Amino acid sequence: MDFALYRKQLLERREGEIAAAQLVRNFSQWFFDLLRNFVLVGGLKYFYEKSGSTVLFYLHELALVVIFFYCLSYADQWYLNLFSVIDDKRLAHWLNRAVNFAVAVLLFLLIRWGAKIIVAEISHAQV
């Protein structure tokens, strides 16, 4: 029995599983970073509500805007090309732009609504 060959084959890496595991790790890292940031923003809201500090209020609002744009930066990575079958490419382009603008506005409102709810829940959980 060749122990060197056995040792090399003892731990195998499967390429497809590594890619999937890396995707899960990357998503988990992003999610927990985002969650930590929401907890921080919620803590700022809690402290400004308890102290009445104007500085903490503006710091909380700035942090909320920054976390909103951070979330929106992920939503802006896709382009819907729904009208590619239309022969008039100029019309297809403007229709695609209108649809993508509408989706961006909906994502903006959804992220804003979700961030406000999450931060409010975190700040009230501090009580």
Rank of each mutant, 00 (worst) to 15 (best):
A115V: 05
K50A: 11
L10S: 14
R14F: 11
I18W: 01
F32M: 13
R90V: 12
M1E: 02
I117G: 00
Q9F: 05
I117W: 08
Y70N: 06
F68N: 01
Q29M: 04
Y70W: 11
G114M: 05
F69P: 02
M1H: 09
G43F: 08
R25H: 13
S51Y: 04
K116R: 15
L64M: 12
F69A: 00
V105I: 11
L109P: 03
F31V: 08
K89E: 06
E49T: 13
A104R: 10
Y58I: 03
K89L: 01
L95R: 04
N37S: 09
V105H: 04
N37I: 01
F83V: 02
L106I: 13
D33V: 05
V55Y: 10
N26H: 09
A98R: 05
R14D: 15
L110W: 02
E121F: 09
L10E: 00
A4K: 14
R14E: 15
V99S: 02
N37Q: 13
L10P: 02
A120H: 10
I86Y: 14
G16V: 07
V105C: 05
K50W: 01
L11E: 00
A4P: 00
A115Y: 00
Q77A: 05
V65D: 09
L10D: 00
V105Q: 03
I118S: 05
R36V: 07
V66A: 13
Y6G: 15
F32A: 11
V119D: 02
S84F: 15
G42Y: 01
L110G: 15
H93A: 14
Y6T: 15
F57C: 08
V55M: 00
C71I: 01
A63T: 03
F83A: 02
V66P: 08
V119P: 01
F68E: 01
W78F: 14
L110R: 08
M1S: 12
I18E: 14
R25N: 11
N96I: 04
Q22K: 14
F68G: 05
D87Q: 13
R14I: 11
V103R: 07
A4E: 07
G16E: 14
V85Q: 12
L35T: 14
F108L: 14
C71S: 14
R14C: 10
A4V: 09
Y74A: 03
S73C: 06
V127H: 05
F57T: 13
L40A: 10
H124R: 15
T54W: 00
L82G: 13
K45W: 01
V39L: 12
A20F: 07
V55L: 04
L59Q: 05
S123E: 00
F108I: 04
A115T: 03
V65P: 04
Y58M: 02
Q29W: 01
Q126R: 07
E12N: 14
Y6N: 15
F3P: 15
Q22T: 10
R13P: 00
L64K: 04
F32R: 10
F31Q: 10
A98L: 08
F47C: 11
I122F: 03
A19V: 11
L110H: 08
V103H: 05
K89S: 06
F32E: 14
S73W: 07
H124W: 04
Q77G: 15
G114E: 07
K50T: 12
L109Q: 05
E12V: 10
Q29S: 08
E17W: 01
